[in-house]
């Protein structure tokens, strides 16, 4: 049987990504359907993540599926020493698809190898979080009308931020120019810069973060700068306010420029920006629903044609 699991976005071609974006846009037109009537979606969260779980469970529910699973690893037998494989084999007897989040890196790849039903990776440690990347791509496509030839600015924690690394891999098909803006301790790692060179992705590193540096941006992707990432707290205190986006920094922004953030934010984006037309992070989170509807359907073998000819739409 063909393995339809989603482990990492890096395996997807340009055509596949465009296909998933088309599916998401169909779901945005009509999010409520009975397309998955009679199916069971399991959400196994070995590490709590309320935001991601609610988004997946809403996506499954709005398509008419039933949802089973657990939100808290403390109630599962994993803590009693059961292996991941045994848990997956047990749940695959009940569910048609498994959405899994795990604190160990590579857990999703392994689960996809042993599971008879498709696995969707909802985050495996510091490794991959493909549904976040899919909603980022959908948000970029929706706001810019294309994914090609964009100027994308990544700001904040570029060292540990897996979302920015996944975005690099997904955007490699679309000839972007990336701009890296980060404190030295959280700068884009050399291995990822080498990845860009190997994949013909242009990138520019900036020292400053002000209205002039970001004037050319189509997308301004903000991330959290977390205190616990710093070995030296005084270094954190020194740089923490330098990577905050303030209202007056938008003075020279291009009209089409949109601000994205994987959320939750701490103080990276001044609250007065929320009402600006450039602010897009709340819509971005909403797009997560349509992106996840698309990912669940794709993993179950439902095609774009099936979705376009769907007779189960609830108006």
């Amino acid at each position: 049987m063909e393995n339809r699991s989603l482990v990492t976005i890096a395996e997807h071609s340009r055509e596949k990504l465009e296909h998933l974006i088309q599916m998401a846009s169909e779901f945005e037109k009509f999010p409520n359907r009975k397309l998955l009537d009679g199916r069971v979606v399991a959400t196994l969260f070995f590490e709590p993540s309320t935001r991601t779980r609610l988004s997946f469970e809403t996506a499954a529910s709005r398509l008419g599926a039933r949802v089973i699973g657990f939100a808290d690893p403390k109630v599962t037998s994993g803590t009693k020493g059961e292996t991941l494989k045994d848990t997956i084999m047990m749940v695959s007897n009940y569910a048609d698809i498994i959405v899994m989040r795990h604190y160990l890196e590579g857990a999703a790849r392994y689960a996809s190898e042993v599971s008879p039903v498709p696995i969707i990776n909802a985050g495996d440690g510091a490794n991959q979080h493909p549904s976040q990347t899919m909603l980022d791509l959908y948000s970029i496509w929706k706001t810019q009308g294309t994914l090609d030839n964009l100027q994308i600015y990544l700001v904040g924690d570029l060292k540990y931020g897996r979302t920015v690394h996944s975005l690099l891999t997904a955007m490699r098909h679309f000839h972007p120019t990336f701009h890296f803006i980060a404190p030295q301790e959280l700068a884009m790692p050399e291995t990822w810069k080498q990845y860009c060179r190997d994949n013909n992705i242009d990138f520019v590193e900036h020292q400053d973060f002000n209205e002039d540096t970001i004037a050319g941006a189509d997308i301004l992707y903000m991330t959290r700068v977390q205190k616990e990432r710093f070995a030296d707290i005084s270094e954190y205190e020194r740089v923490k306010d330098r990577y905050l986006l303030k209202l007056d920094m938008l003075a020279k922004a291009k009209e089409n420029m949109k601000i994205l953030h994987p959320l939750p934010r701490v103080n990276e984006i001044e609250y007065s920006i929320d009402d600006e037309p450039h602010a897009y992070y709340f819509e971005q989170a909403r797009n997560g629903l349509f992106a996840r509807e698309a990912l669940i359907c794709d993993a179950l073998g439902i095609t774009l044609d099936d979705i376009r000819n769907d007779k189960t739409i609830i108006l």
């Binding site: 991941l84 795990h102 604190y103 160990l104 590579g106 495996d124 440690g125 510091a126």
Partner: peptide, 12 residues
């Protein structure tokens, strides 16, 4: 070498 890798935590 990664202690948080699934291969170091599962019989595989």
């Amino acid at each position: 070498p990664n202690s948080k890798c699934i291969t170091n935590n599962e019989p595989m």
